[in-house]
Design a protein around this nucleic acid. Structure first.
Length: 311
RNA sequence: GGGUCGGUGGCAGAGUGGACAAUUGCACGUGGCUGUAAACCACGCGGCCUUGCGCCUACGGGGGUUCGAAUCCCUCCCGGCCCA
C-alpha cells in the first residue's frame, strides 16, 4: 500500500480537459498551456486524421497561438485508426513533453481515448484482422454469439443482455478476433497502475447554451467551406462508405453530396446527431467523480495552479 | 355552392367491426461499450398504480347502430383536389 502510494505521488502530472463538443475545450487548452508552460495532446478520434479539418473542428495553426499540439494529423483517413494506437502515441508524447519539463494538457472530447490514456486501460494485444472481420460479417449476431459461447463462454456470458443475447456484431466480432488469434479467452478488463496523476477539468455549460453553440458553429462552418472540404476529400479518394463510418459531419454531408437528402435535412440531422453525441460524452464525464467542473477560465487556472504547486 | 378524398399518439404514416393503448419510421429519453468509440448496440416512449396479460382516458367534435367501434351510419368542424 505504501509502495503504491509513493509510486503515485512520484508520478508526473497530467491535466485532462474534457467536455462535450463545442464547449470550448481547445480554447481553454491553449489558454492554460500558455499560462503554465504546457503543450497540448489532442484526445479526439477524428482530429487524428489528415484533411479532416473543418468538419472535425480541428484547431487552426493560428488558434494554437504557438502552443505545441500533438496527435493532430497523424493518420490517413482512408485507414482506420485505433484507440490502442492512440494510447501508445499519447503516452509517448506525454513522456516527451515531461522530459522537456513542460506540462502535458490532454484536451479532447473522445471519452474512450481520454480514459484509455488517463486510466492506462490494458487492451488485448490483438491487431484488427480485416480478413477475419470480413468473414465474420456474413454471420448474424446470434450466430456470432453462438460461436463465442463455444470458444469463450465467460466472455459470451458477460456480453449478453437480459434476454441472453448480444446484438452488437462489432463487439462480438472483436471478441472472436481476440479468441481466435490468441487461442485463449478474452482477458478480464483491467488497467495498469496509473502512469501519472491526472487533474480532470470539465467545462460546465447548460445544455441549452450548448445547443446554441452547436447550432451557430454549424452554420459558421458550413459558410467556412465545410461542404467543400468533404467534396475535396471524396475527390482525393475517400469513399462514401468511409465517410459514413467517420460519422456526424462526414456522414451527413456525404449524404447531402450524394443527393440523398436536402441541405435543410442535412443541417437538421447533423445538429440532432451532434446533440446526441453531446449527451453520450456527458454520460461518461459526469459519471466520473474526478472531474472538476468549471464555468470560466479563471476557475480552471486556479485549479491547475494548486494542482501543480501541490508537491 | 356542388362533388370527392381525407382528419390516428411530438411528427410522418399503418390499421378499416373484437386478439388495439394501437404495426413501423423519425424525434425524444435511459443505458451499455475490452484496438472501428463522432463508431457500434440495447431498452423505454398516453396516464395511474398494488406492475396485473390491472385500471382509466384515447384514433377531429357530437350523436347513433352493436354484446363490442379508430374501424359502420348521421351530423357538425377542419384540410387537399376537382367542378362551378
Amino acid at each position: 500500500m505504501t509502495r503504491l502510494k509513493t509510486k503515485i505521488e512520484s508520478q508526473k502530472k497530467l491535466i485532462a480537459i474534457v467536455g462535450p463538443t463545442s464547449s470550448g475545450k481547445s480554447d481553454l487548452g491553449v489558454f492554460l498551456a500558455k499560462q503554465f508552460q504546457g503543450e497540448v495532446i489532442s484526445a479526439d478520434s477524428r482530429q487524428v486524421y489528415r484533411g479532416l479539418d473543418i468538419g472535425a473542428g480541428k484547431i487552426t495553426k493560428k488558434e494554437q497561438k504557438g502552443v505545441p499540439h500533438h496527435l493532430l494529423d497523424i493518420a490517413s483517413p482512408k485507414q482506420t485508426f485505433s484507440v490502442a494506437r492512440y494510447q501508445k502515441l499519447a503516452n509517448k508524447a506525454i513522456q516527451t513533453i515531461q522530459q522537456r519539463g513542460n506540462t502535458p494538457f490532454l484536451v479532447g472530447g473522445s471519452p474512450f481515448y481520454v480514459y484509455t490514456v488517463c486510466d492506462g486501460l490494458i487492451l488485448p494485444e490483438v491487431k484488427p484482422n480485416a480478413v477475419l472481420r470480413a468473414r465474420l460479417e456474413k454471420y448474424s449476431a446470434q450466430e456470432l454469439h453462438e460461436m463465442l459461447k463455444e470458444l469463450d463462454p465467460v466472455r459470451a456470458h458477460s456480453l449478453q443482455d437480459s434476454s441472453g443475447q448480444d446484438k452488437n456484431k462489432r463487439r462480438l466480432t472483436r471478441a472472436l478476433e481476440i479468441v481466435l488469434e490468441t487461442g485463449k479467452p478474452v482477458p478480464p478488463f483491467c488497467s495498469s497502475l496509473p502512469l501519472f496523476s491526472a487533474l480532470f477539468i470539465g467545462i460546465d455549460m447548460l445544455r441549452e447554451t450548448l445547443l446554441n453553440r452547436v447550432h451557430s458553429r454549424l452554420i459558421k462552418r458550413v459558410r467556412g467551406g465545410m461542404v467543400a472540404e468533404v467534396k475535396k476529400l471524396h475527390k482525393e479518394g475517400l469513399s462514401w462508405k468511409r465517410m459514413e463510418e467517420l460519422g456526424l459531419e462526414y456522414r451527413w454531408m456525404s449524404r447531402f453530396l450524394r443527393n440523398k437528402i436536402s441541405k435543410e435535412q442535412m443541417l437538421l440531422k447533423l445538429e440532432q446527431d451532434t446533440m446526441r453525441f453531446v449527451k453520450r460524452q456527458l454520460g461518461w464525464f459526469t459519471k466520473d467523480k474526478r472531474v472538476h467542473w468549471v464555468s470560466n477560465k479563471n476557475e480552471a487556472s486556479c485549479l491547475v495552479a494548486s494542482f501543480l504547486l501541490n508537491q
